[in-house]
Structure formats: structure tokens, C-alpha cells
Nucleic acid binder design. Structure first.
Lengths: 158, 158
DNA sequence: ACTTTTTAGTTGACCTATCAACTAAATTGT
DNA sequence: ACAATTTAGTTGATAGGTCAACTAAAAAGT
């Protein structure tokens, strides 16, 4: 049981309380480890790289900040991540003619090949994970996450 | 909507897929930021320190590895965390007579004072967070997290 | 036109997390 | 009794996340 990890006095009075954020913490880290191992095995790329690839998409042509909007990644982190991906030959950057601050980003041939190979594998993985949930659970977990996120961003309670 | 953060082709075919782990990632990081700020404001302690305090408990007398069992924290991380907490005067360590490898850990007076001050605040915070969920959602999110964790630890799918 | 502000992205500093190597004490096996 | 293994905890190396300072280009304000 989830509550077992907390001292009774806390858990008993407030069964969902910190336990919930803690549970999210734990599950998150385990899912991350799993995803990273899985990706390492199937295509040898890093989780962050996969996320960025996914946000570019096989035929995409996008920019730094557009990716950031999509996946809400720190811009410094994304900058370094993209540098790595370019170094590995997964992504190519070409200057944007109308705005010299930004660059158009797209997958290289190698990037596309890996993307296309990885996508179905990741789909399988996710189906496997989500398949462990009931319909109700999978619906509820999404709305619960949305609500928790909103609650966490509500500055009144801070 | 949650699925909006992924390319249509991915999201449409597999609505819950990576989106779910990604949502957990996002929500987790926002909850963490929120918790850290909240703790900073209410008692000036770090999130990791709070978690350890919580696992020791106001009257607790425990060991390194017992904490680790409770909160599944990396042992190196916990070692440094405890060192910091001892330096801050939150925790005191005394040698265990029967086993010289381990130490008995408990909260100092200062630690207890902060613990007692922080606990109701954290309860309020958690009630606030959990209060944003419906009964169904809060039940479902727990079982969903349990199942996802088990699925992620299943080595068959790796 | 030119100053101010916003936007795009990079870099550095720092902090946390994870993993592996290591020491020392206790337990188990013979 | 003593060798081998397990358990407890520390430390170091490294990767990833977070924040803030910085440069440069573009847009907006006057």
C-alpha cells in the first residue's frame, strides 16, 4: 500500500497527502529509468533526445522555441540537448532567413531513420504501460494530473 | 488538453502513450517546485530534508537504512542529506551499541520544533492539492500509479 | 531615427540524482 | 577459528535539471 511509506500518524490523518506527491516522485523516477533503458536498448538514444525528436517529428521543420513551447523544457537544457543531437548527427540546423536569431531545426536522414525505428517501439512500450490501467484509471489519471498541475501553479497557495 | 503537446500522428493513434509519462514528468517537476518554495517559506528547510524528517518522525529513533527502506532514497544521497541535516542541527546521530556499522538517528530539539511547525503546514498544502481532485480521481490516481510502477519494474518488457 | 523592450538562444554556476567503488563491521559457512 | 559473503554507510565521478546572467537580433514606442 502506498500509505505504508509514511509514519502512521501522518498517513492516517491525511491519507492522500504528501503520499501522493511522493508517489508521483517515485513512479516518475521509475518510469524514467525504464524509458531510458528501453530507449538505450532499442535505438541507443537518450530519453531527452527522444523527447525532442518526438516534438520535431519525422517531417518537422521547427525552431528552438517552438520545441520549448511543446515540451516545456528549460531553454538552457534544450540548447545543450540540441547541440548534442547535432553532434550525433540526429538533427540539422539551418539559418532562418527572416529572423536571424532563430534557426530552423529538422531531423537528418539518420535522425529520421532512428525516429521511424523508435516510434513503434515506444508505442508498444506505452501500450504496455497504459494497458495495465483500467479505462477509468487512465481517464482519471489524466484529469488528476491536469488538476494537480493547476493546483501547483496556483500562486494563491504559496 | 494533454495530448496537444505531441505531434498529432503520435497522439491520435495512441492517445495515452508517451503523453502519460511525459505528463507525469511535468506535473512531478511542478509539484516539486511548489513543495520546495512552500517549505522554504514556511520553515526554510529543503524538500529532501523534509522527506527525511517525515520518515524519522517527531519521536522517531531510526537508522540510515531504515529511512532508506521507507522512502526509497539513494544511499549516497541520503548520506549527504543526513550530513547536511546534522550540520544544520536538525538531526543527531549516536552510535548503535550492538552494531557499530550503524547509527541511531533522531531529531534534535530544533529538528522537532521545525517538524511540528511544518507538519500542519504541509498537511494544509496537501489537502489543498488533493482537494482539487474528485473522490474517483484521487482513488484512481493511486491505483494507476501503483500499476504503472509495477509495469515499469517488470523486466519482461525491457 | 533612435532608444527601449521583447524575443531567441547560449553559457556558466550550482544543485540534485544516479551509479559504482570503496572501507569497515557483522554474519555465515566450513 | 577463520575465510568468504553480506550489510552499513561514505565518497567520487558523472549526468541531468534549474536558475540567472549574458549577447544579439527584432519589434515597439516616441
Amino acid at each position: 500500500m502506498s500509505t505504508a511509506i509514511y509514519p502512521p500518524e501522518f498517513g492516517e490523518q491525511t491519507p492522500l497527502q504528501d503520499v501522493l506527491t511522493w508517489r508521483i516522485h517515485q513512479v516518475h523516477s521509475r518510469l524514467n529509468v525504464h524509458a531510458a533503458k528501453f530507449l538505450e536498448k532499442t535505438s541507443g538514444i537518450a530519453l531527452a533526445h527522444w523527447r525532442v525528436m518526438l516534438s520535431i517529428g519525422a517531417e518537422g521543420d521547427t525552431t528552438h522555441s517552438e520545441i520549448r513551447r511543446k515540451i516545456a523544457m528549460d531553454k538552457g537544457q534544450l540548447s545543450r540537448c540540441l547541440r548534442g543531437m547535432i553532434a550525433e548527427g540526429l538533427v540539422m540546423a539551418t539559418g532562418d532567413e527572416t529572423d536571424q536569431r532563430q534557426q530552423r531545426l529538422s531531423l537528418t536522414k539518420k535522425g529520421k531513420r532512428i525516429f521511424k525505428k523508435t516510434l513503434p517501439e515506444m508505442r508498444k512500450r506505452q501500450s504496455y504501460l497504459v494497458g495495465s490501467l483500467s479505462k477509468t484509471e487512465s481517464k482519471a489519471i489524466f484529469s488528476a494530473l491536469d488538476k494537480l498541475e493547476m493546483a501547483a501553479q496556483n500562486h494563491e497557495f504559496l
